[in-house]
Design a protein around this nucleic acid. Structure first.
Lengths: 182, 182
DNA sequence: TGGCTCATGTAATCTGTTACATGATTCT
DNA sequence: AGAATCATGTAACAGATTACATGAGCCA
């Protein structure tokens, strides 16, 4: 019970790799985890404070040239906390697809609306797919010096595989809808 | 701003179809939406109270034989609130895959652990897939009297498509891992 | 000079979970 | 008789978002 939040682990996961500022962490989450994770500044900065109080990170004010920054470093205690979580095989995957929820309840509103929604979803997926495919190709070119690259690649491939599945579903869904006479 | 929660819409979506009790709604969510939505009793009963205060639902104590029940009915106002949401094409899909998050950060812990995690995920998916495939086949047999059936079928097919993608990814991931020498 | 991004943080509030509490009925 | 399920609800708290607040540096 109690500690079910995982923002702290996500942050420690990044800090385990290299020291970062809160701002960096936010950007990194948005670029590398956005397919399956999210986090706002509000949660990141407050979580960093908590982690510091718990002794899992330490901070240093680093004035990079002229700009003031606060860089966070993981401690040994933080590493072992992270590792305990990583060694635990259980995982709770939570999905909240508002798209699917609306689709589920839209039957009585007609096929046109359903079609429109599927097309909107399809467009969003198609617009995001190239970026994910690009990061896969980038990661494939890096030869595995860094033991993390392989795992980054695996998660990126997960994105590609699921996005392709979404598009196949869109195709099938449109066909099915069109096969019904109005 | 403010009203971003969607539990209320999910509930109204069901009540739009037929009057139900809170307990019924919980079960219905667990069986029909569990692939892309969730909700606890705590959220359902409190949301029902809020919906009643807002005039979107009314309740009646119906003593079904001997058991006391409270059945909720959607109002006209509730229908129009639901419809406004359904007609809005925007949708926020939020995913929190703890599996992927752990995978992403586990690179330094070795391939064995990564393999174990993928296998655990694969087993979970394989155990759930038959149920989804069964509901697709059930829905395909119902000829479209009810205009909702088609949309139920589409969401169920979404589940099948994504689950198959997960399994393909598992296969590819295992191969990739094994292709690397320890 | 004005707008954008960098950078950090807080307060209010929302949304939902978990655990608890209660008690009846049905099944075995 | 005992266990499981039906059925409703509340209180405490967890976890995160949004909006606000502030200010500096960079680019055009």
């Amino acid at each position: 019970m109690a500690n079910e939040k995982k923002m702290d682990r996500a942050i420690l996961g990044f800090l385990n790799h290299e020291p970062m500022t809160g701002y960096d962490i936010k950007k990194r989450i948005d670029t590398t985890l956005h397919l399956f994770w999210g986090g706002s500044y509000g949660s990141i900065y407050t979580t960093l404070s908590t982690l510091e109080n718990d002794g899992y990170v330490t901070k240093k004010a680093t004035s990079d040239n002229k700009r003031e920054k606060i860089t966070y470093y993981i401690t040994e205690s933080g590493r072992s906390y992270l590792q305990t979580w990583l060694l635990d095989m259980s995982a709770k995957d939570e999905l909240r697809y508002e798209t699917l929820l609306k689709l589920f309840f839209s039957g009585t509103l007609g096929k046109d609306l359903t079609l429109k929604r599927i097309e909107a979803f399809e467009m969003k997926i198609k617009s995001e797919l190239p970026m994910i495919e690009f990061s896969v190709s980038q990661l494939e070119q890096l030869e595995g010096n860094d033991p993390d690259h392989l795992n980054f690649l695996l998660t990126a491939k997960f994105g590609v595989e699921t996005y392709h599945a979404y598009l196949r579903w869109c195709e099938g869904a449109k066909e099915l809808l069109n096969s019904y006479a109005d």
